[in-house]
Write a protein that binds this DNA or RNA. Structure first.
Lengths: 326, 326
DNA sequence: AGTAAACATGTTTGCGCAAACATATTCCTC
DNA sequence: GAGGAATATGTTTGCGCAAACATGTTTACT
């Protein structure tokens, strides 16, 4: 900056003002500084800027995985929101481990981010305490069933489970099955499941099978679990899947074996992923606004850090889309 | 750090040594410092660290989109590789725009990253010049057909197009169609397409239809384009899709309308996405090692910045997987 | 014309850390 | 038991920038 200042015949501070366009600088000086900067190829050093007191304009984002479309869509929303501002996301993947998540966030805090976007409401006590004590703005996305550290942008998984159960009960189904993956990792799916089961039982219907895979969720797993369930003695008349990938896999199994859907077996998923539209049948599912949650969270954390913002809990309601598989 | 130093009764510099575990520090001092740091909840400030001369341990990652699984898998590979080291990726999405990409990278450089991971070999002249002049390690991923800025980790799209054409010609197909999306954005698909056409023509066969959508690629678009092609007067006997999403959409159309694959129409895709496994038929495709390219690129850029590394061009060969749709 | 505001620039200082360069203090070797 | 190496700690300094606080210079309004 000093070099630019010399070339433009002004003080370093004036260059700083031009770069951030803050304070008063005359038109002519701006031009001189800008051309001087371009001439010597000056690149602003944000490390120094951050250290000297400006806000760091970094936001930490920690998600459980990128293997699942759901989270890459959240991230997509986040980056889209940041593309307008000059905020940059620093990214980490926790692999659904609270230990890893805690470590990642601790590392991120070393960059003095202005905000943090985490996934879900379940974190290690250490992480929770650290963040409560720190001054960074924290948003937890994709869930609101619980006590957020600060703000949460998401929806109620319990309600989603209840709603789907209601829908299926309304359609007259009596014998329910559930297919999920890694229940000790995907805690939000478990919330849906429990709520779903409760609703089913209260209506006097029963869960005839619950099938969990240890593998990460995928269409293939959904297909395999469906095949296994349909070979069981006590066949259900509807399967509720933890997500659309599993459900779509189930549909593929039915298609490949000429099993009538929903006559012989009905299927329901969760998330409302875009690719469902192109399947031969429209799968009944609950649409979740993943991209929107990402953008909203990004905008929230990247606001002016000086202005105090009340913690909020925003419910981006899920939207049950009745397809033709139920 | 000074506070920790006081509490542990040592100098600030010794604390610094303990934090980075570099240099000589005695066992007892380490313990004292660590417990002092924990006691006051000290969080290392990497802005200051970076400014003071240590390498910043940030790596910039700019990809064209996250809507496409391909790139979220690359990113997944990158983050996986970084999870071991204490390097953090700063992330940006260019939306396939060279202008946006240039701006993003310029912003990233302000963080003095130790490396940069970009996608493809086509960039603005400004970006190319800036990066050639700078000292950050640059890796361009997913393509090697061209002149990289420094190093490139990817595969040959020309070869992939040629290989698929050879495969289809070998199967006896004579009338070829192609379906793609946004050809002025997805430059790599165009490379495959051109090479594919050349090979087809040289073998005396012909391209009967080429269909481009202006929408981003998706299964639904693939399905719609396939329907349109099959209504044309001059029907092809095989369709080569720009990617697996389109191809899978094509398959869905055929499944939904009882069109015999490959008897009435054969289908081929590109990428070898995981979800293909679960479809009722195995689509012929070229498997690309996206995750592996991500990890390799991440490891390459995050190496010790002091040691000079020769630029490399690594060919992660694509792997043609003959399914039962051709 | 006089004065307060708005405008335009400059000087000093410190953010928190790690290189670079001291000193001590041990340890080993001949 | 002398002397060099290995070990252990401390002091000074500067990275590049932006707050904080000057100090001029216009403009605007009475």
């Amino acid at each position: 900056m000093t070099d630019v200042a010399k070339l433009a015949n002004v003080s370093q501070m004036t260059v700083s003002r031009v770069m951030r366009n803050s304070g008063y600088v005359s038109e002519s000086v701006i031009n001189r500084v800008v051309s001087a900067a371009t001439e010597i190829g000056y690149v602003n050093n944000r490390l120094a800027g951050g250290l000297a007191g400006a806000d760091s304009s970094l936001v930490g984002v920690v998600l459980p995985t990128l293997q699942n479309r759901v989270f890459s869509e959240v991230l997509s929303g986040v980056t889209t929101a940041f593309s307008e501002s000059n905020v940059q996301p620093v990214f980490g993947v926790s692999e659904y481990s609270q230990r890893v998540e805690t470590q990642l966030v601790l590392d991120l805090l070393a960059w003095r981010p202005k905000g943090l976007i985490l996934s879900g409401l379940e974190h290690s006590k250490e992480l929770r305490d650290t963040l409560l004590a720190s001054s960074v703005r924290v948003v937890e996305v994709m869930d609101i069933d619980g006590r957020p550290i600060e703000s949460s942008f998401g929806f109620s998984h319990r309600k989603a489970g209840w709603e789907m159960a209601q829908h299926l009960l309304g359609k007259g189904y009596k014998r329910f099955a559930y297919v999920g993956c890694q229940p000790n990792r995907d805690l939000r799916a478990v919330k849906r499941y429990k709520s779903f089961c409760n609703t089913v039982h209260r209506a006097g219907a029963q869960m005839v099978v619950t099938k969990y895979s240890d593998e990460p969720s995928s269409m293939l797993i959904g297909r395999q679990c469906t095949e296994a369930i349909l070979r069981e003695k006590h066949k259900p008349d509807v399967i509720y899947y933890a997500n659309d990938d599993l459900a779509a896999g189930g549909l593929m199994h039915c298609l490949a074996h000429q099993i009538q859907v929903p006559k012989q077996i009905a299927l329901a998923g969760f998330n409302g992923l875009g690719f469902l539209e192109s399947l031969p049948m429209q799968i009944t599912t609950s649409r979740t606004p993943r991209f929107e949650i990402g953008t909203a969270a990004a905008e929230f954390v990247s606001g002016d850090p000086k202005e105090l913002v009340e913690p909020v809990k925003v419910d981006f309601a899920v939207d049950l889309v009745a397809g033709d598989t139920t």
